[in-house]
């Protein structure tokens, strides 16, 4: 079933929408949650919440590309659950390492509370991604959006883990340089 048909099922308020999205994107959403949470049980909970949130969002929304829409909901729910559980124990799949790596990019900055600042930062990141070659961009997004492990990215991209790590390190430095030049960090 194509995505437009699935979205239409949501608009028709048909319960088959959940069945269809589970069948097509269940593993996809589960992988995202699992990368962040590192717990199958927590991931399952997040995926179920994703379906509910999607049900509540469509309508009124009508996403043109369904996977990022679902993935973003799963990711946000997973981050929320991560925050909740992280206060109690150490864990969280690949996320601690991913967060440490991203911390290097904006080391020393005091706050990201301003909505305007966050918006400008997002624009710079999107611009940075647009300037990357496709294969490098995939590596960056796999790591810092999907929180994929370096091993998984290496297999996906047919590279060595070492090469993936080097590429990520290089891209983090490039992003930091770009943010510095843009005056967003100092």
């Amino acid at each position: 079933m194509d995505d437009a048909a699935i979205v239409q099922l949501f608009w028709d308020r048909s319960e088959k929408a959940i069945e269809a999205v589970t069948k097509k994107y269940g593993r996809f959403c589960h992988a995202i949650a699992m990368n962040i949470l590192g717990s199958a049980q927590d991931a399952e909970e997040c995926v179920n919440d994703t379906y509910l949130a999607t049900w509540n969002s469509i309508p009124p929304k009508r996403p043109s590309i369904l996977p990022p829409f679902l993935g973003r909901i799963t990711r946000n729910l997973s981050i929320n659950l991560y925050k909740k559980t992280h206060a109690e124990k150490r864990g969280g799949g690949n996320l601690p390492l991913v967060l440490d790596e991203l911390g290097e990019v904006i080391a020393g900055e005091e706050s990201a509370d301003s909505e305007l600042f966050r918006k400008e930062l997002l624009e710079q990141i999107n611009e940075f991604l647009s300037e990357l070659p496709s294969d490098k961009r995939k590596i960056f997004v796999c790591r810092y959006w999907y929180a994929d492990s370096v091993k998984d990215i290496a297999e996906r991209m047919n590279m060595t883990e070492n090469n993936v790590s080097v590429s990520l390190n290089r891209m983090r430095n490039q992003l930091r340089t770009k943010l510095l030049e843009g005056g967003l960090i100092s």
Binding site: F28, I65, P67, P68, F69, G71, R72, R75, N76, I79, K83, L95, V98, L99, D100, E101, L102, G103, E104, V105, I106, A112, R118, L121, L122, I125, N126, L129, S130, S134, R137, K138, V141, C142, Y144, W145, Y146
Partner: peptide, 20 residues
């Protein structure tokens, strides 16, 4: 890094789509 990770959540859909 957690703040940046959350900001990255809103990157362009096409890049998210492309990666997986």
């Amino acid at each position: 890094g957690k703040d940046l990770f959350e900001i990255i959540s809103d990157i362009d859909d096409n890049y998210i789509n492309e990666a997986h």
